[in-house]
Design a binder for these strands. Structure first.
Length: 357
DNA sequence: GACACGTGGGA
DNA sequence: TTCCCAAGTGT
C-alpha cells in the first residue's frame, strides 16, 4: 500500500505557504491580490527567466519595461535597440524571438496577447513552459506549468527514480495530478518559489519545507538524490582570433554577427571561426598587428573558448573589408556587445593604456 | 531524444 | 579550480 498524500492536499499545503512566503518580484502580483497581472510583463519576465536567474533578470526587466512599457512599444522598437538592450543576458535567440513575438501580437492579435495556451504556444519563442506559465499566471487558466523547479519538486514528492530526461513524461503526469483547477498560476509560482528557495538542487531545506509530510523523497535517506540525471558530456575547448581595429579618431570597427549561430544578431569584434585547433591568425587586412599576451577565456554552455585578441591602430582613411561601423570608444557601453567581446574590448583597452605609458 | 544556444554565481 | 546550474526553445 502506498503512502501518498491526496493530490489536493499538496496544492492546499503549498498555496497556504505561498500566501505567507511568496517572493515579491517586480513582475509578480502578490497572491490574493485583486489586481490582474499584465500579460506583457508576465510574458517578458518568463522569456527573460528562461535558463536565467532572478538576480540577473531584474535589472534587464526594469530597463525593458521602462523603455518599452507595452507590447506595442516593443513591437515598434528597432531591432538593434532591442538586441543592444539584451546584451549580457545571453541566449540571444530569445531577443530575436522576443521582437518577433511582440510584432506577431501587434499584427495578428490586435496588440493583445492571446489568452489560451494553444494560441500562446504558436508565438515565436513561446514553448510549452512559457505558454502554460502565461496562461496560468496572466489569464488564470488551469495550465500545467513544468519547468526545472517543478520537475525537481515533483520528482521528490513522488520519489521518481527514472533519470531525466526520460522521466519527463512521468513527471508531467504527476504535475498534472497535483495542479489545482483554481489558482493554477499561484500554484505554479509557488512551486517555483519552493524550488528556488527550499527544495533546491543541492541541499534542500527539508526542515522548513511545507510539503515534507507529503514528500516521498523526504522519507528516503537522500532527498537530494532526486531527480536522477543522465551523465553529462565533457565540454570541448575551442580557439579563435578577434581583431581590435582602433582608428586615430578614437573609434573602433564593429560588425554585426549573422542572425544564425553563436551570438547571432549581436554587435561584435571581427573574429575568425572558433575551431578545435587554432585557426591561422589571418588578419582582415594588412596592418601592424600586435597580439595581446593572454587570450580572453570564456566558457559557453557547450564549449570553452580561448580568444586571441589582435590590436591594430589605423589611419582615418582606413576602411576594413566587409560590413561594419566605426564606433566611438567613449560610447562602447551603448554598443551592446555580448560578454565575450566586452571582455575582449576591456583587454584591448587595458593593453593600450599600458602602451601609452 | 540530442544538440545548439550565454552568463554569472555558488559550492 | 572546476563543476553545476537557473522560470527553455528551436531544430
Amino acid at each position: 500500500m502506498r503512502v501518498e498524500s491526496e493530490p489536493m492536499k499538496i496544492a492546499e499545503d503549498l498555496l497556504a505557504h505561498y500566501g505567507v512566503h511568496a517572493r515579491r518580484l517586480p513582475w509578480r502580483v502578490p497572491p490574493g491580490s485583486n489586481e490582474a497581472a499584465d500579460p506583457y510583463r508576465v510574458w517578458l519576465s518568463e522569456v527573460m527567466l528562461q535558463q536565467t536567474t532572478v538576480a540577473a533578470v531584474a535589472p534587464y526587466f526594469a530597463r525593458f519595461t521602462d523603455r518599452w512599457p507595452t507590447v506595442a512599444d516593443l513591437a515598434a522598437a528597432a531591432d538593434g535597440d532591442v538586441m543592444a538592450a539584451w546584451a549580457g543576458l545571453g541566449y540571444y535567440a530569445r531577443a530575436r524571438n522576443l521582437l518577433a513575438c511582440a510584432r506577431a501580437v501587434a499584427r495578428d492579435h490586435g496588440g493583445v496577447f492571446p489568452d489560451t495556451e494553444d494560441a500562446l504556444r504558436a508565438l515565436p519563442g513561446v514553448g510549452a513552459y512559457t505558454a502554460a506559465a502565461v496562461a496560468a499566471i496572466a489569464f488564470r487558466r488551469r495550465a500545467v506549468v513544468v519547468d526545472a523547479n517543478v520537475e525537481r519538486v515533483v520528482a521528490r514528492l513522488f520519489a521518481i527514480a527514472t533519470p531525466l530526461p526520460a522521466a519527463r513524461t512521468e513527471i508531467r503526469a504527476a504535475a498534472h495530478r497535483i495542479t489545482p483547477d483554481a489558482r493554477a498560476g499561484d500554484f505554479a509560482q509557488a512551486m517555483m518559489d519552493l524550488g528556488a528557495t527550499i527544495c533546491t538542487s543541492r541541499s534542500p531545506a527539508c526542515g522548513i519545507c511545507p510539503l515534507r509530510q507529503d514528500c516521498a523523497a523526504f522519507r528516503t535517506a537522500d532527498p537530494a538524490a532526486f531527480p536522477a540525471k543522465a551523465a553529462k558530456k565533457a565540454r570541448p575547448h575551442r580557439l579563435g582570433h578577434a581583431w581590435w581595429i582602433e582608428r586615430d579618431d578614437g573609434r573602433i570597427w564593429l560588425i554585426r554577427r549573422p542572425d544564425k549561430g553563436m551570438l547571432g544578431g549581436m554587435r561584435a569584434l571581427p573574429s575568425s571561426d572558433w575551431s578545435v585547433t587554432a585557426p591561422p591568425a589571418a588578419p582582415p587586412f594588412p596592418a601592424l598587428w600586435t597580439a595581446l599576451a593572454d587570450p580572453v577565456t570564456h566558457v559557453f554552455t557547450h564549449f570553452s573558448l580561448d580568444l586571441m585578441v589582435h590590436v591594430a591602430r589605423v589611419e582615418g582613411d582606413c576602411l576594413p573589408p566587409g560590413e561594419g561601423e566605426w564606433w566611438p570608444l567613449d560610447r562602447l557601453d551603448e554598443a551592446g556587445l555580448p560578454t565575450l567581446f566586452r571582455r575582449a574590448a576591456d583587454a584591448a583597452m587595458k593593453e593600450n593604456i599600458q602602451d601609452a605609458w
